[in-house]
């Protein structure tokens, strides 16, 4: 009897054991080792020393270079998030009004690229945004610009491409909020005399807010952790946190400093996620309580 009860209570742990072993051995241990690495002393000639220091963190937190790096990455991610909201909200509402067959097709068109390698998508943009690429030829022949716009190796280009890469996540998040929305409420508002703008602002938008916020958190964190796109489109001119980590590890070979920047990035992202989750909870307690 006791044996059966014991088996019952140990069953979930036995079932989770293989995955937990994999995760402790290959996630918890390497992450802890990286945290330790970030406190090691690094000397240009002799490499990583067995002595400990907080100098790497002092450098990241006080050096204006790293301050600018994190600020640039934050502003870039914020910009991408804002554009994704501005495009994602209307597009999701448009999708919702489509006939089911068309809706299915356009879901595949909009979300399918998520499954195609980000390197391939970025290559497409590298060709499109080149000095003599199709976008610049179009802008020139339409007379919108006098001379080719420099998209490559500029923040503008990085933001455009990251928006393309991350927009599907925003649309998915808003779509799931929209599924919970009662379409009749919007009809009621309209039939009671509210114009389309008032209906959108006072009825539809507040109900979409949870979806927009969770989409914003996803897009912001993915933008701040993106590597291939800023590395290819931004190059050395637009350095962000991830490309700086890559350079410390594979070019300067200063692993302890690179590890310190990586840990700071992780902390910053966790802080943003937890902070915005609390904000969301507080706000919506006020709305729905």
């Amino acid at each position: 009897m006791a044996d059966a009860a014991l088996r019952q209570s140990s069953a979930p742990w036995l079932l989770s054991l293989p995955s937990l072993l994999l995760f402790v051995g290959l996630l918890a241990v390497p992450m802890a080792l990286t945290a330790v690495l970030s406190f090691h002393v690094f000397e240009g000639m002799r490499g990583i020393q067995p002595t400990f220091t907080i100098a790497n963190y002092v450098q990241v937190l006080t050096d204006g270079y790293y301050y600018e790096l994190f600020l640039r990455t934050g502003l870039m991610s914020l910009g991408v998030t804002a554009i994704c909201v501005l495009i994602g909200v209307p597009e999701t509402l448009i999708l919702a009004k489509m006939r089911p067959a068309l809706q299915g097709t356009f879901f595949v068109v909009i979300l399918g690229p998520l499954l195609i390698s980000v390197v391939v998508r970025t290559l497409g943009w590298q060709i499109l945004l080149g000095r003599q690429g199709p976008v610049n030829s179009a802008l020139l022949s339409l007379g919108l610009v006098e001379e080719p716009v420099r998209f490559l190796y500029s923040m503008t280009g990085v933001v455009i491409v990251l928006t393309h890469v991350l927009l599907p996540f925003m649309i998915v998040a808003i779509w799931s909020a929209l599924q919970k929305l009662d379409g009749q409420v919007a009809h009621a508002a309209r039939s009671l005399g509210a114009g389309p703008i008032t209906t959108f602002r006072r009825v539809v938008l507040p109900q979409l807010m949870p979806g927009i916020l969770s989409g914003a958190i996803i897009v912001f964190t993915l933008a701040a952790s993106a590597f291939a796109t800023p590395a290819i489109i931004g190059g050395r001119r637009v350095k962000v946190v991830t490309t700086a980590i890559y350079d410390e590890f594979l070019t300067s070979l200063n692993w302890p400093l690179g590890a310190a920047i990586a840990i700071m990035l992780l902390i910053a992202i966790v802080a943003v996620v937890l902070g915005s989750n609390r904000l969301v909870e507080r706000r919506f307690k006020q709305v729905f309580a």
Partner: peptide
């Protein structure tokens, strides 16, 4: 949460951790 966590951690950070490991 532990099993879902690789989705939250930036892949650059994971790359660094695995390189060291």
């Amino acid at each position: 949460a532990f099993l879902m966590s690789p989705m939250m951690i930036p892949h650059v950070v994971l790359g660094v951790a695995f390189l060291r490991f």
